[in-house]
Design a protein around this nucleic acid. Structure first.
Lengths: 345, 345
DNA sequence: CTGAAAGCGCTTACAG
DNA sequence: CTGAAAGCGCTTACAG
């Protein structure tokens, strides 16, 4: 008979089974020291009663909240057009829920507010650990979680840079492949539309673009700094189009800026890729919605998050973990890149 | 001296203040029966010690988790291109965090899994209440939360339809305005690209389209059912373009389908809005990225969520609440709609 | 105005 | 193999 009026507690199960609550606890949690007979009997009764251990009792005695925190540090404008977090949350949630963990989410539009949220979450013991995403250069959160002794896993942090384990997805192979392809198509003057310099991944991508060009024996083209938004990309298009010697290709630090660049460039009368090739980074659905479809480097936020979650739970369990690298972002050639214009004026 | 080595507990504060823990509790929680002098003294000491009450102790004794749940019931493909949830989460989080509440998130790609998540969250007492979003016709979750006595607030449920308080944003005024505009531009044959019929809001929008047309003395045009995805919209474009008597305008149940429709229609050689006008619903950023820019009905998921959160917290507190209606979705005219083609073949 | 005590629902040594 | 007890950190009647 399921459907008790009040939710059953461990005491109810113990009473019904005629054993102590410690036996029920041991039986249900797979701890040793319970005969198989009583274990099975207790399990049956627990199922009958629809007993699910209350997180309240569990977390107080186990000194765990069974929750893990993610703080999204982005303005509302970016978050709405960037599917990164949707995928990330999906990947995290898939491994967390399997392990009985919940994901608690907070938003912050400034880095200070985000930091305050981390502190608050840790102080109130709302979570057992946190993800450190969108890392900035000299990110204060790293020192903070360290001082708070808050288990944490960093996303896409450079190896050896922070005293926090990290999971990362390589960017160099994909960017090198992209630039080899562009150079193979005759491009010699290749610009970079970078993200804000305070972000680690902005620097990583620009650096990768630079070394790939060096590898190919080319000088870096102009660098324009955007803000990861569509409008930022559009603005960059105007800037680059106005330049005396216009680059024949632009490698953008994310798809959203690439889409803005490509769209505005076309509004200004340029043909893509006839006059200028454009490539993005991320592999978001938007890249297939626009015309021409966007060449990009496809990342895997879902897998990144799944790995990060496994690591974070390990850290929470007190295990020592080592950095994990998932397969690098891969080149997806679509229609926005092509042969360099023959007559560069 | 802040920065204790171990996090301070209520006992530490009490010891340092030379009072009992019940006095500390009363002082810090603003309960009556503490002299202003000791209250201030205790507050000072708590601040010195960096004391933040542990949610673990608090939730066990207060019988609250201080968390509220949101289950996202969508396939990964939709969630990544639909910014609704990003905005919704932002709106919810802004009021929840102010009240000391957290938002715990789960994902489910089927309605059965979502239901299981609700049950699990309730049974483990991980949350004190839940949002019921993306309601379906005869949604089993409604009965479930009712039976589980789980406080809940429904999003965009029809008034009086479910035994759960709801917050909603009107759609009829906007859809009427859109159709008046289209008819004013000479359109007489107006199709609807609907969402899956199992969703309440699909039905609501189709019904609104129907009654607006009736109001204007027109017969409804063809209805094609999509799946709220870009590709679904693209497929619908092929279906509608192949029709003997092609409609001159299509009203879509969401922006993503409208974008797919518009893009594929152009790939097929139609001019938008010259040959056919296209309108969406939602007001997502994508609508401004595509060409021509999309006419749409702008919704306010952020405000919807903020209101829903206030209501949910009230329900959790045992207050009786009444449905709330926020200002209706408003017409945003952009470039994808215009005068009907003069020669309808 | 203040304190001692019970209790929330578990887990975890520790005895037997 | 099983149970009695302590304890996790709070809140909340209830005495004084």
């Amino acid at each position: 008979m399921p459907m008790a009026d009040k939710a059953a507690t461990i005491t109810d199960v113990a009473a019904r089974a005629g054993v102590s609550i410690s036996t029920v606890s041991a039986a249900l949690n797979g701890r040793a020291g319970v005969s198989e007979g009583t274990r099975e009997r207790i399990k049956g009764i627990a199922a009958d009663l629809g007993f699910v251990p209350s997180l309240r009792g569990r977390s107080l005695s186990a000194k765990r909240s069974f929750n893990v925190g993610l703080i999204i540090q982005r303005g509302a404008d970016v978050i709405e057009s960037d599917p990164f977090f949707a995928s990330f949350i999906g990947g995290a949630e898939s491994v967390l829920s399997e392990r009985g963990y919940g994901l608690v989410l907070q938003m912050a539009d400034t880095s200070e507010k985000a930091l305050a949220h981390y502190r608050q979450m840790a102080a109130a013991k709302r979570v057992d650990g946190v993800f450190l995403n969108e890392l900035e250069v000299d990110d204060p959160r790293v020192a903070a979680v360290h001082r708070l002794r808050l288990p944490a896993v960093a996303i896409n942090a450079d190896p050896g840079r922070f005293p926090v384990p990290a999971v990362r997805q390589g960017f160099q192979p994909g960017i090198s492949a992209l630039l080899s392809y562009l150079v193979g198509m005759g491009h010699r003057h290749i610009a970079h539309l970078a993200g804000p310099t305070r972000f680690l991944h902005s620097c990583q991508r620009e650096q990768a673009w630079r070394s790939a060009l060096a590898e190919l024996g080319l000088e870096p083209g102009p660098v324009v700094t955007g803000d990861f938004t569509f409008d930022g990309g559009a603005g960059a298009a105007e800037a680059i189009v106005a330049q005396a010697v216009r680059p024949t290709a632009v490698v953008c630090a994310n798809d959203l800026m690439a889409a803005g660049f490509l769209t505005r460039a076309q509004d200004l009368g340029l043909r893509i890729p006839g006059d200028i090739s454009v490539a993005g980074y991320d592999g978001v659905p938007l890249g297939e919605y626009i015309r021409p479809r966007l060449t990009t480097l496809k990342t895997a936020p879902h897998e990144l998050a799944a790995q990060a979650s496994r690591m974070l739970l390990a850290v929470v369990d007190g295990e020592t973990v080592t950095d994990v690298e998932i397969p690098p972002a891969s080149l997806v050639l679509r229609e926005s890149t092509g042969r360099a214009p023959t007559a560069v004026r």
